[in-house]
């Protein structure tokens, strides 16, 4: 089976192929962070781009940037998938410490990351999503508001709740992690 099929527009296919390769890793990684699972992210990648393909004719550049539209599809799909499935927390074997300087640093950093991921997994979908959009995709509050179709003030309050909840979880989970905070 080739890219083209009878009755199918080759220009569409060529363009969509380029689009897929442009954004596949970004979507895959974002889905991984939202779903906590590489396997789930692999399935999500397929479903998200299938939705993108079907919805492309309705994409209106005058209503927002393409990436905002793509992130919206990604977030909405991952949310619906999480609602349908019980997803795992991050397994320890996902640790990838090989690029670190020494074994003890590797172990400590991987442990800290696992603690952060486990704490994130305890958050609601809404809170975890704003963390990924802000601290992985590096979107501004305005951009996050556009992706999630919520007011900017809601983005701010969700981030506030998410970060402060995480801080509490991290303090409780691992006293070794220095949060440089005096007792309140």
């Amino acid at each position: 089976m080739g890219i083209h099929h009878a009755g199918q527009d080759p220009y569409t296919q060529a363009s969509f192929t380029a689009l897929f390769h442009q954004y596949k890793n970004l979507v895959f990684r974002t889905a991984f962070l939202l779903l906590n699972s590489e396997q789930e992210a692999e399935d999500a990648l397929q479903e998200i781009f299938l939705r993108v393909y079907k919805a492309l004719p309705s994409f209106d550049p005058t209503k927002g940037a393409f990436t905002t539209w793509l992130y919206r599809i990604t977030v909405n799909y991952c949310r619906s998938r999480r609602r349908r499935h019980v997803l795992p927390t991050f397994p320890l074997e996902n640790a990838r410490p090989s690029d670190l300087a020494n074994v003890s640093e590797c172990v400590e950093r991987a442990e800290n990351e696992d603690i952060v991921l486990r704490a994130m997994a305890q958050l609601s979908d809404d809170l975890r999503t704003v963390l990924v959009l802000r601290y992985y995709l590096d979107l501004s509050y305005r951009e996050i508001a556009d992706v999630l179709n919520i007011p900017e003030g809601t983005v701010k309050s969700r981030l506030d709740r998410a970060v402060k909840t995480l801080r509490g979880e991290l303090k409780a989970s691992c006293p070794r992690i220095s949060l440089q905070e005096a007792d309140q």
């Binding site: 890793n25 990684r29 962070l33 590489e38 990838r96």
Partner: peptide, 12 residues
């Protein structure tokens, strides 16, 4: 953590 875990991943 988000970058460290996600960046090494490549779409299959």
């Amino acid at each position: 953590t988000l970058h460290s875990r996600a960046e090494p991943l490549e779409a299959p």
